[in-house]
Simulated assay, not measured.
Amino acid sequence: MSTLTSSRTRPSEHAAEPAAGFVDLLAAEWIKMRSLRSTYWVLALSAVVAIAINVNAVRSDLTYIDQPHPPLPGFPPFKYDPLFHGLGSIAADVMALAAASFGAITVFGEYATGMIRTTLAATPDRRAVITAKVALVTAITLVLGVIVSVTSFFTTNAMLASRHVGLSIHDPGCLRAVTAYALVIPVCALIGMAFGAVLRHATASIVAIVGVLFILPMLFGGERYRFLKEIGNHLPLAAQGRLALNPDSNVSLGEYPATITGSWIALAAWALVSVAIAVIVVRRRDV
C-alpha cells in the first residue's frame, strides 16, 4: 500500500525543470562550435594568412619607397599610402570569405546533420536559440577582426617607421580605418548566417556568399549611372574600403563618391537586416 501511494505521488513531487537561460544557450552553442575543430582552425589560419598578406605587401614596398620618384606631368607627386597597403583589400577579402562561411555553417550545419531537432526539442524558443548563435558568431568574428586589423596596422607601420612614412593611430582616418577593417568581418559572418538560414545547403550558401560579396560589386561599378554606383558604394566590402581610405592620399573617388556616414550606415544595415532574416526564417520555417 505504501508502495502504491509513493508511486502515485511521485509525479507531483517532481519539480518542473527550469527553462534554459541565455547564458546556457551561449554555452551550448560554444560547445557545438568548439567540437568542430576544422572550423576554428580555418578561422585562425585565415587570420594568419590575412596578416601575412598585409605584412608582405608592405615589406615588398620597402625597396620601392627607397627609389627616387620624379614627378610625372599631369600626376600628383608620389606619396606612399600605409593604409592602402597595410590594410589591403585582398586580406579583407580572405577574412570576409572565411567569416561568412563560418556564419553560414553554424546554421546550415545543424540542419544538414539533424542537430537542429535536438536543439529545438531542448529549447523550443527558436528566437532565443538563433539569438544566442548570432551573439556568439558576432563575438568570435569580431575578436578575429580586431586581431587582424590591429596587428596589421601596427606591424606594417612599425616596418615603415624607418622610411618616415608610417602612421600613428592618432593620425587622421587611421582609427576609423582600423575600426572598419575589424567590423566588416562580423558583418560578413552575419550575412553568411542569413544565407545559411534561408538556403540550408552548404554549396548554395557558399555560392550565394561569393556572389554577394565578390561578384555583385562587379555589376555596380563604373560611373555612368548614378543609382548603380550608389548601390555599389553600399555593398559591405565597398563600404569598408571607403571607411579605410586615407584622407591624405591622392586616390580619386570619382563620380558619386560614397560618404563616411553612408558607409557606416551601410555596414550597420547589412548586419541588422542579416540578423532579422536569420531570426525570422528560423522561427517561421519548419525544421
Rank of each mutant, 00 (worst) to 15 (best):
T3F: 04
L4V: 14
S7N: 07
P11W: 05
P11G: 05
E13A: 15
H14L: 15
F22C: 04
V23L: 15
L25Y: 02
A27D: 10
A27F: 05
A28F: 04
W30K: 04
I31E: 07
K32A: 00
M33K: 01
L36A: 12
L36P: 00
S38Y: 01
V42A: 14
V42Q: 01
S46L: 02
A47P: 03
V49S: 08
A50D: 01
A52F: 09
A52K: 08
I53K: 02
N54L: 05
N54Y: 08
N56A: 15
N56M: 13
V58Q: 04
V58F: 08
V58L: 05
R59K: 07
D61E: 12
L62M: 13
Y64P: 01
I65D: 03
D66C: 04
Q67A: 15
Q67S: 11
P70Y: 03
L72V: 14
L72E: 15
F75R: 14
P76G: 03
D81K: 04
D81F: 08
L83K: 06
L83G: 03
F84T: 05
G86C: 07
S89H: 06
I90W: 11
I90E: 11
V94Q: 00
M95S: 12
L97A: 15
G109P: 11
E110R: 02
G114P: 05
R117L: 07
A121G: 14
P124Q: 06
R126I: 11
R127L: 15
R127S: 13
A128C: 08
A128T: 02
V129R: 02
I130L: 00
I130P: 02
T131E: 00
K133Y: 01
V134Q: 08
A139M: 14
L142M: 15
L142Y: 04
V143S: 10
L144Y: 09
G145F: 12
V146M: 14
I147N: 08
V150R: 03
V150P: 04
V150H: 06
V150K: 12
F153K: 07
T155V: 15
T156E: 13
T156F: 10
R163E: 14
L167Q: 09
S168T: 03
L175N: 06
R176P: 01
V178N: 06
V178S: 03
Y181H: 12
Y181I: 06
I185N: 01
P186G: 02
P186E: 00
C188Y: 05
L190C: 11
I191M: 10
F195D: 06
V198G: 02
A202T: 14
A202N: 11
A202R: 00
T203R: 10
V207T: 15
F214T: 05
I215A: 15
I215E: 03
L219T: 10
R224V: 02
Y225G: 00
R226C: 06
L228H: 03
E230G: 02
H234R: 15
H234T: 15
L235A: 03
P236R: 07
P236I: 11
P236W: 09
P236Q: 11
A238D: 06
Q240Y: 10
L243Q: 13
A244L: 01
A244E: 10
P247F: 11
S263K: 10
A266G: 02
A269T: 14
V275Q: 05
I277C: 10
V282C: 00
R285H: 11
D286N: 13
